[in-house]
């Protein structure tokens, strides 16, 4: 299991990284924390990549509150997201998510931007950003652009980012007073990808529910959200069941995952109401 990389270049800045990508003849691959990419390379699922290592670009790391938004740099590591007081205060869902992401050593290297750009449908962060209504910020040869999270995740491992673009960070609306954010998931073992996971945010304007590990991309459960807003949990569970089309694999069938989505929704709502999960 020895990786076969086509080449490597260390980017000194975002501009430099974009130049490297532009010069890679389509073989460029952005290397951030490497916790998914290097594994894929070792397994020879990805061969001959020209690696653009952005991990040393300090401007892409960090967490800041800017008015009523929380900005998180793409290279901010999971471990930092999990312990940062501003994340705790303004986007507690992300902090809770970190505890479920793999294991300590992975969280020390993995980055939030890497996780979002990788777009693994079983990962926590994509669904979290969907539940929280994040905005993705990308830099490309023609400058920067923002992408609404609803438009960002397209397919398994596929996002709206162009090949010559780099995800530089995300912004999130900071939690309102009284907002509640809850993450529920079931995994076979601690740190495993969830069989199904569910993010629930309750805001003055209503509920937001996003699920992961239920299809090729994270799903915003609009029907369930509307039913919850109407105060009908049973209808929300039914709606949820109808609006996800989960996969079957060696860990669980679609039927199990669909059932579990409903269980997790009930548990999340119970926690909203202060009941023990």
């Amino acid at each position: 299991m020895k990786a076969s990389a086509g080449g490597y270049a260390r980017a000194e800045s975002v501009r430099h990284a974009l130049d490297l990508l532009a010069g890679s003849d389509g073989q460029g691959r952005v290397l951030a924390g490497g916790q998914s990419l290097v594994a894929a390379m070792n397994m020879r699922l990805s061969v001959g990549d020209l690696l653009v290592d952005i991990s040393k670009i300090s401007e892409l790391s960090g967490i800041a509150v800017e008015g009523d938004t929380l900005r998180i740099g793409a290279l901010t590591r999971h471990a930092q997201v999990g312990t940062d007081p501003q994340v705790q205060a303004h986007a507690p869902l992300l902090k809770d998510a970190v505890a479920h992401i793999a294991h300590a050593a992975i969280r020390n290297r993995g980055t939030i931007g890497g996780a979002l750009a990788h777009a693994d449908p079983a990962a926590e962060f994509p669904a979290c950003t969907l539940a929280l209504g994040a905005t993705m910020h990308a830099e490309g040869p023609d400058g920067s652009r923002s992408i609404a999270v609803e438009d960002f995740f397209e397919e398994v491992f596929t996002t709206a980012l162009n090949e010559d673009e780099i995800l530089t960070g995300i912004t999130l609306p900071i939690a309102e007073a009284g907002e509640m954010q809850i993450l529920e998931e079931v995994a076979r073992r601690s740190g495993d990808y969830a069989l199904v996971g569910l993010c629930l945010a309750k805001r003055a304007a209503g509920h937001r529910v996003a699920l992961f590990s239920v299809g090729p991309k994270p799903v915003l459960a609009m029907g369930a959200m509307a039913a919850l807003d109407a105060g009908d949990l049973d209808a929300a569970v039914d709606a949820l069941s109808a609006e996800i089309d989960p996969p079957s694999d060696t860990q669980a069938s679609a039927a199990y995952r669909r059932h579990l989505g409903g269980v997790l929704l009930r548990r999340a709502v119970a926690r909203l109401k202060g009941d023990a999960a």
Binding site: A3, A5, Y8, R10, L31, G34, Q35, V38, A39, N42, L51, D53, S55, A79, A104, A105, I106, N108, R109
Partner: peptide, 14 residues
């Protein structure tokens, strides 16, 4: 930091 040695390239260790 404790890290996975197999998920970090030597090239990144500069």
């Amino acid at each position: 930091d404790a890290v996975r040695g197999c998920l970090m390239l030597a090239a990144q260790a500069d």
